[in-house]
Design a binder for these strands. Sequence first.
DNA 1: GAATGGGGTGAAATCGATTACATAATCTTA
DNA 2: TAAGATTATGTAATCGATTTCACCCCATTC
Lengths: 335, 335
Amino acid sequence: MPTIQDVARRARVSTATVSRVLSTPGMVSEVTRERVMAAVDALGYEPNYAAKSLRTLRTAKIVVTVPDISNPFFSSVIRGAEEAAQAAGYSVLLGDTRHRAEREEQYAGMLRRKEADGLIFLGHRLPDTLAELIARQGAKAPVVNGCEFSPDLGVSSAHIDNTAAAAEAMHLLYGLGHRTIGVITGPLASPINRDRLEGVRAAAARHGAKATLRIATGDFSVESGEREAHGLLAGRDAPTALFCFSDEMAMGALAAARRAGRRCPDDLSLVGFDDIRFARYLDPALTTVSQPMEDLGRAAVALLLDILAGRQATPRSVILPHQLMVRDSTAPARR
Amino acid sequence: MPTIQDVARRARVSTATVSRVLSTPGMVSEVTRERVMAAVDALGYEPNYAAKSLRTLRTAKIVVTVPDISNPFFSSVIRGAEEAAQAAGYSVLLGDTRHRAEREEQYAGMLRRKEADGLIFLGHRLPDTLAELIARQGAKAPVVNGCEFSPDLGVSSAHIDNTAAAAEAMHLLYGLGHRTIGVITGPLASPINRDRLEGVRAAAARHGAKATLRIATGDFSVESGEREAHGLLAGRDAPTALFCFSDEMAMGALAAARRAGRRCPDDLSLVGFDDIRFARYLDPALTTVSQPMEDLGRAAVALLLDILAGRQATPRSVILPHQLMVRDSTAPARR
DNA sequence: GAATGGGGTGAAATCGATTACATAATCTTA
DNA sequence: TAAGATTATGTAATCGATTTCACCCCATTC
């Protein structure tokens, strides 16, 4: 691999000039610029990345950590993030943490080692390493959350209005005449789920149905959806509608309902969350709260770039629009 | 951020000693080692990554490119790759190419700029940059394919026996008495699909049913599955069974069948490919060819690490086991 | 014709680590 | 006890870029 020295020698200029041709061509005269470019092309020169990064203290990389990349919600957010990063000249270091704190820490360490310029995390847990960083640097710490919002973390984030979205979903069900509604949340450690639950409770209160709310806690996986739905549907006075905080759990719930001999939407209405690409292809097509997943990723990157460019004084929070997609898994309650 | 100089000063040793403590602790006496570690801890020192990389010519990063990360098959392969990479001290640079050649080239460029030590590509297209590299370095080029196999590329790869797997799926259908079978393939530019098609044809020939094979070409997406299935089911003498080269297309096919008023598996048997996590939760649970997706990722990384460690003389190809998962979407043909 | 200014270029310092080589101190062994 | 081996450490070169500063040259301007 040729170095800048080789190019300089060949073009009979100094390395400084070569560097200038490549980064600030305006400073160099036409003739030398051409001579240098000819040498660059002839040698197939590409600047060594580590050297550049060492000198400039910029890596043009951002870490994106995610609890589980094979979860379609997360992979779509990542997709948007990757696209936006790429467009801005950054590349994405993927960290699949498998919900494990030590792996989160490990990826957070990349910031300290200057392996990356910033970090976006899609879970809810803020690694200690980053908490320290934020304590020191405040809003200038290059850390953004990609889909949650926890005001106490002091981190910018992109997310939807989870409380409102959950309330809308419940409102739909109450409007269809359902009174006893089961809700399968995600882990309550996560503010996203607490927010949604708040929306759920508010809607129940508004419809005077707080007493008939049945709440179960899942972990977003299909399996947990199936398990929790099974539990909710088992008892007497079982719910006539189920609201799951992820489409995957809704798929599990659908399977559980089938096993219990309840048909959707005739015997049981079902609402999911996220609107992953498969939601509309389920049978029945799933009614769900649509999140702009790729946009969330893009917005998170935009926030991070703002911080990196120094144009951010205080943590910001971008709220993207959601939409309740009413499909075929919801129907009027039977009496 | 403290540098190695700061640590050296504080521990009253040379930078060489600090470096040794961190990378070859055996060479350093007990007492100085402790003094140095104390300084490291006190300052919270972490080696600067770019400096290290510049000196050692190693980045400890591998690029993984994928046509579409939000496709569950790819995201699972990536997941396995990330895990194996992490375990070996590497991190993964994610390249979502959106099927676009120029983005593939762009990521391939990271190898030339020494931004990464190696590259795994999950599509079928080998970027020109890499083809050159392989022409120059042969089997030592740090490039591996993650799920396809094309002997002519001269690239190591991890994959299943696609021909055999497809033949098995067809064999199942013929065994159930189906004669007219529709097949929805992926893009035929990709050897993976040509291999599977070969298996399909071989099975048809063995069962004397070559004439009643109906072949359509999709692109692995749900939408294309729906579209192609719609086409296949429309004509007279429509197939009684459909074999799709991805589970996503099978989901689309299921939707198309529903719309056409055909019930699965009673009126139409359906077989998918991949066994993504949702396959078993569809209604009916999908019969499909299970690929060990995470293992494919892990195997690809292992191959790459072999190359990077210099223990590979000629391109190798690792064949992982597949398994036909017979579930509820296949049933005997009605007569 | 001297002073001023600006554009273009090069010399050399610098980023922060690793490591070959030199050296000092200690230990073996004949 | 002297020679040689071994161990521990330091000195300084090195990786390949960027960037500061100095310089030269030529065009303006008074």
